[in-house]
């Protein structure tokens, strides 16, 4: 874990790539703790919050969004050079985001269908994660990220300790809240058992399945889980759509989508 503890206050910068700005807004959403954060770090580049922008290098760089246009690539390389500790924030930056659904299609076709003058639009074939282009020091998952995890990350980085960000499944959060399992008690196909915690199991607490906003958990066994859901009557189409959302291009969800869509079935002798 890189330490950025210095005599002076660490300098923080926030950058945006292809994204909705929702993850940056989670920093502003920290309302009650914003002053405490500002006491600990100098916010030197955060266009969503202030027009003043000071040049790098920065101690902490928070990067939102995916790499989606040719201009993004030299820009992220330069940002990496300018930031000692680079953190991706959110599903777009960490796995390519909802816009990575285009990765299964032809970009030229989309451009022709959507824009009057497609020639004006510069777009890469695929929307990809920041870590596909530069080394990343830490990932904050989520769509959007969780404000408590963001505050924890800043607190930890400032003093040079490891952030307390769990890597276990959403199920652990459901059980700790006392939420009744929607998969077991209602037969709803839920991604909780294969999704990393961080949201405090928000959707199951409101009678909905987990949609996988925080991406795959460690060693996710999607083949077993979806095999069970299929035997309970869920269609492969529905299960494929469930993994093909905010983190569709994460390697684990991507492979599972393609398996459900007719790729090789590795669920031998089950």
């Amino acid at each position: 874990m890189t330490t950025v503890a210095t005599a002076k206050k660490p300098r923080l910068a926030v950058f945006k790539f292809a994204s909705c700005d929702g993850c940056q807004l989670q920093l502003l959403d920290a309302e009650g703790q914003l002053r405490a954060i500002a006491d600990q770090v100098e916010i030197d580049h955060f266009l969503e919050a202030r027009s003043r922008s000071l040049p790098g290098p920065y101690d902490i760089g928070l990067v939102e969004g995916s790499i989606s246009t040719p201009a993004d690539i030299p820009r992220i390389l330069e940002i990496r050079r300018q930031c000692r500790f680079l953190v991706t924030i959110g599903a777009c930056a960490t796995s390519g985001g909802i816009q990575a659904l285009r990765n299964w299609g032809q970009v030229d076709e989309f451009l022709g269908a959507v824009y009057a003058t497609p020639a004006y639009v510069q777009s890469l074939e695929k929307s990809t994660a920041i870590a596909d282009h530069v080394p990343v020091d830490f990932e904050l998952r989520g769509c959007p990220i969780d404000t408590r995890q963001l505050v924890e990350l800043v607190s930890a980085v400032v003093v040079g300790r490891r952030p307390r960000v769990p890597t276990y499944s959403v199920c652990v959060e459901c059980k700790m809240r006392g939420t009744v399992c929607v998969a077991v008690a209602r037969g709803i196909a839920c991604l909780g058992p294969v999704t990393q915690a961080g949201c405090d199991a928000l959707c199951p607490a409101h009678d909905r399945e987990c949609f996988g906003c925080f991406g795959p958990s460690q060693q996710p066994n999607l083949v077993s889980l979806n095999g069970f859901y299929e035997r309970q009557g869920a269609s492969r189409e529905r299960l494929g759509r469930l993994v093909q959302s905010f983190n569709a291009w994460s390697p684990e969800f991507h492979a599972e989508h393609d398996r459900l869509a007719g790729g090789p079935d590795t669920e031998a002798d089950r």
Partner: peptide, 29 residues
Amino acid sequence: ADRCLSCANCTLVCPTCFCSSVSDVADLS
């Protein structure tokens, strides 16, 4: 293990499982 999700549900609903983790946490100030 080919079927297990390692999701931890079994241990958390188990009325005898007693494992815990302890962390020291401080606020920003």
